[in-house]
């Protein structure tokens, strides 16, 4: 408002405003425990997950209802993915994998609601999850295999001269994992929402004649629906792959 009164250009678009964190009550400082829009949308995510996975499966029907079959499809899909990648030993980590996947996918989809705050678009959130995966996998690898875990850096099938070089590359790529793991998700979320916001700004500036930006928003929104699920899948499948390294370090 202030900028319009100031007589600024009509293309006064602030695509990053949607990512600002605000306190839910009042205008105070944001400390670590302040209930913010992060709290609100994470809470909504939790409620949707409970609705789908707990109330949706309440019937325990042999012939499932719609919500129960959604829950079952997600369950079977993740279970077979985990077993395919890590083998039977990975099954006991299934609740962790399921938690990550269901949180990311529901938070992403909820974030696509108009006016929503997308918690997974923040690097602090995705990096926390990625670091948790990284630390879990590293600690688990050493606990399970001892020093043999270092074997993932020493490619036994490569020629002897290449092995030290490959070891350096492997070590670098190992430590880059949490970075790429977290930035991939946050970047995708942020970019998609910012693009939609930019097109929405065009639509606001063009007023009645805003057919092209609205069609573009619809197209990008459809694409985002796809991206949102694929990113959750990618995050989860990479977690499974890293977990496989910890459980079976031999290449």
């Amino acid at each position: 408002m202030a900028s319009e009164a100031e007589g600024g250009s009509p293309f006064n678009i602030h695509p990053m405003d949607q990512f600002v964190i605000k306190p839910l009550f009042g205008d105070g400082d944001i400390t670590w425990y302040t209930p913010t829009n992060v709290t609100l949308w994470m809470g909504i995510t939790v409620l949707i997950i409970i609705a789908l996975l707990v109330f949706g499966t309440r019937g325990r029907a042999i012939v499932p209802s719609r919500s129960q079959s959604i829950a079952e499809v997600i369950y079977s899909f993740l279970y077979s993915m985990l077993v395919d990648i890590t083998g039977k030993e990975g099954v006991k980590y299934f609740p962790y994998i399921f938690t990550l996947f269901i949180f990311i996918v529901v938070a992403n989809i909820v974030g696509l609601l108009p006016g929503a705050f997308t918690t997974t678009s923040h690097i602090a959130v995705t990096a926390t999850m990625a670091m948790a995966v990284f630390l879990t996998v590293t600690i688990l690898g050493f606990v399970k295999n001892g020093m043999a875990f270092l074997g993932i850096f020493w490619i036994g099938s490569a020629p002897l001269i290449l092995r030290p070089i490959l070891a350096i590359i492997e070590i670098i790529s190992y430590f880059v994992r949490p970075v790429s793991h977290s930035i991939r998700l946050a970047g995708n979320m942020m970019a998609g929402h910012a693009v939609i916001k930019v097109f929405a700004g065009f639509a606001g500036a063009l007023g009645i004649g805003a057919v092209a930006p609205i069609i573009a928003i619809m197209a990008v929104y459809g694409l985002e629906m796809l991206v949102v699920v694929i990113q959750a899948y990618v995050f989860t499948i990479l977690t499974c792959v890293y977990l496989k390294d910890a459980l079976h370090p031999a290449h």
Partner: peptide
């Protein structure tokens, strides 16, 4: 703030 609420969320979901 985000990390705190994320941890709470993930623990509840878990």
């Amino acid at each position: 703030n985000q990390i705190f609420w994320l941890v709470v969320t993930l623990v509840v979901i878990f």
